Computed example of a mutant assay.
Amino acid sequence: MMSMQVKLTDEVANALKNGKPVVALESTIISHGMPYPQNFEMALAVEGKVREHGAVPATIAIIDGELRAGLSVKEIEAFAKKGMQITKVSRRDIPVIVAQKKDGATTVASTMIIAELAGIKIFATGGIGGVHRGAETTMDISADLEELGQTNVAVICAGAKSILDIGLTLEYLETKGVPVLGYQTADLPAFYTRESGFKVDAKIDSATEMAAILKSKWQLGLKGGVVIANPVPEAYSLDFKEMEKVINNALTEMNQKGVKGKDSTPFLLGKVKELTAGKSLETNIQLVLNNAKVAAEIAVAMSK
């Protein structure tokens, strides 16, 4: 059901009204993912990839306190230029940003919320947040996991970010009843790498089968999202053991510098980029494009 609380572009509104496939995209990836103009170019390339595979892209953001599904090229560019000045918004931040009529860049959690309000079921991102390494003492657990437990949106991602404790992230998702499905893979990818040492709940070979599973879940009234893990294309995958070394070095430096809370993810991702001589950035771009393609294919299969 479409909500009056979300302002849609004409293209997104018409697609939803006519049962056409729509894919939600987050805006934190634009504002906080990389510098301008790379972030602007990537945002347009991701939207282009969704269109190329038969679906309508709906980039989600908050602009002047208004929840938005679908942005104009001009709005995407404004977001890309403002970059880190825009507040990163998760569930807890939405009411503040709306009431203060500010701009907000949506994370996985807040994109899921706005997508569901708009009536969009499929969302493509980079990687989901999860349980941080050392969370047994810090309690640093991403709001993405709570959202996946309660919001009916499927998230196509390259697994959980490799800086996380992936084993504990999977345990948490299991507790919340969230299926973790591998798209043409039995191995759970870890963002930059095609494997993590962990398995998915089930390997699903086609977009049609994936769409049937999503329909079954929600028709049965089983609340919550689904993680669809889609590995980065082989040509861009980084070496798993090498990445573990890089991440451990980044974690050591983070702890020495006393970086905590919401500053930890940007710090670690920046450090990983530095330690991999920028290779992780190219991998990041390619995995997002690949997720947009698969998300569009699943959205097309669902609309049929």
Rank of each mutant, 00 (worst) to 15 (best):
His32Tyr: 12
Thr137His: 13
Lys271Arg: 15
Leu275Gln: 05
Ala158His: 09
Lys88His: 06
Leu269Tyr: 09
Thr185Phe: 11
Ser142Phe: 02
Lys102Asp: 03
Ile120His: 10
Thr9Asn: 14
Phe191Gln: 07
His132Trp: 01
Gly54Val: 11
Val300His: 09
Val300Glu: 12
Met112Leu: 04
Lys223Cys: 08
Glu282Phe: 04
Gly224Pro: 05
Ala55Arg: 05
Ser162Pro: 01
Ala124Tyr: 10
Ala99Val: 06
Val294Pro: 00
Gly19Pro: 02
Leu173Arg: 10
Pro57Phe: 12
Ala301Gln: 12
Asp201Cys: 02
Met84Gln: 13
Val153Lys: 07
Phe79His: 02
Tyr192Ala: 03
Lys257Tyr: 09
Lys241Asn: 15
Ala45Pro: 00
Ile86Ala: 04
Gln219His: 02
Pro95Leu: 06
Leu181Val: 01
Leu214Trp: 07
Gln184Ile: 03
Ile113Phe: 09
Leu71Cys: 15
Ser216Cys: 07
Asn291Ala: 07
Gly65Gln: 03
Ala115Arg: 10
Pro37Ile: 05
Ile86Gln: 05
Asn248Asp: 10
Leu289Ala: 05
Val108Asp: 04
Lys304Gly: 03
Leu8Val: 02
Gln85Ala: 15
Ser216Met: 13
Glu174Met: 00
Ala229Pro: 08
Lys223Tyr: 13
Leu181Thr: 07
Lys7Val: 14
Lys101Asn: 11
Met254Ala: 15
Asp103His: 15
Ala55Asn: 03
Ala118Gly: 07
Gln150Met: 12
Gly224Arg: 11
Ile63Gly: 01
Leu164Val: 01
Leu164Ser: 01
Leu214Gly: 03
Asp103Met: 13
Glu253Arg: 14
Ile120Arg: 06
Leu168Thr: 11
Ala160Leu: 10
Lys49Asp: 01
Val226Phe: 11
Ala154Ser: 07
Thr185Pro: 07
Lys199His: 04
Leu281Trp: 07
Ser72Pro: 08
Ser31Lys: 10
Asp201Ala: 07
Leu168Lys: 15
Val246Asp: 03
Glu136Ala: 14
Val22Thr: 04
Glu11Val: 08
Asn255Asp: 14
Met2Phe: 00
Ala277Asn: 15
Gly225Cys: 06
